[in-house]
């Protein structure tokens, strides 16, 4: 057992780089610097809205790319998300965080697009991800492009709702409460869905990240 602990210890020491495109959630009691920005944007200051766009568009675009898996569609959905955000700015509650709120709008926009595609489907490549041929050590696996490819395949297999919730958590660093708000789910459902998403991901990656163990 001690050996297993050792084996994973090196992975635990590797710092997970926080995605710097996502603003760090402010600590309790601290006035979020976004509040002032938001007030200015609501008063119709174009510069303030531009700052909000600059700050959040990269993560909104990334999220939409993951949900829609099409660059042109993700560009247009990003545009639509911010246009809607601009018109709905007044509906944002005082205690709501901008990042989660924007991802919530983005998710609605992406669902509408996915519905349109279902009615009028485009030919999409549905390449089934290959299983790994061998199981390298966890460290090597993390460095290999094969793990990236497997991850991409695993994400693609998740339902878009489950994928959205999982990525809000681990890619965009939103707390569970904000995800519940953005998805319109209760907290328990958020936890269940993310848990199931993780199990699905691990099943796909297990040959890699665990060195074939378990």
């Amino acid at each position: 057992m001690a050996e297993t602990g050792q084996r994973f210890a090196s992975l635990i020491d590797v710092p997970v780089t926080p995605a710097d495109r996502t603003p760090v959630p402010p600590r309790r009691g601290e006035v979020p610097p976004e509040r002032d920005l938001l007030d200015r944007a609501r008063r119709g200051e174009p510069e303030a809205f531009r700052v909000i766009f600059d700050r959040h568009a990269p993560s909104v675009r990334r999220f939409l790319g993951d949900l829609l898996r099409d660059d042109t569609a993700a560009d247009e959905a990003t545009q639509e998300t911010f246009v809607r955000a601009h018109t709905r700015m007044r509906t944002l509650r005082e205690d709501e965080r901008l990042g989660g709120w924007l991802l919530g709008i983005a998710r609605m926009v992406s669902m509408e697009q996915l519905r349109r595609w279902r009615r009028d489907p485009l030919p999409l490549s549905e390449e089934e991800p290959r299983e790994p041929d061998r199981a390298p050590s966890p460290e090597a696996a993390l460095l290999s492009g094969e793990a990236d490819r497997l991850l991409d395949g695993a994400l693609r297999l998740l339902s878009s709702e489950r994928r959205a919730a999982l990525l809000m958590r681990i890619d965009h660093g939103l707390p569970y409460e904000q995800i519940a708000e953005a998805m319109g789910w209760n907290l328990q459902k958020v936890k269940n869905e993310i848990h199931r998403a993780r199990l699905q991901l691990r099943e796909r990656l297990s040959g890699y990240v665990e060195g074939g163990a378990s």
Binding site: T4, I12, V16, T17, P18, L151
Partner: peptide
């Protein structure tokens, strides 16, 4: 340790994907 290694590995893989 195993659970944490998984959580870290997932996050690393997901976050290191290129930014569009």
């Amino acid at each position: 340790a195993r659970e944490m290694a998984w959580l870290r590995a997932e996050a690393q893989l997901v976050r290191r994907r290129p930014q569009p």
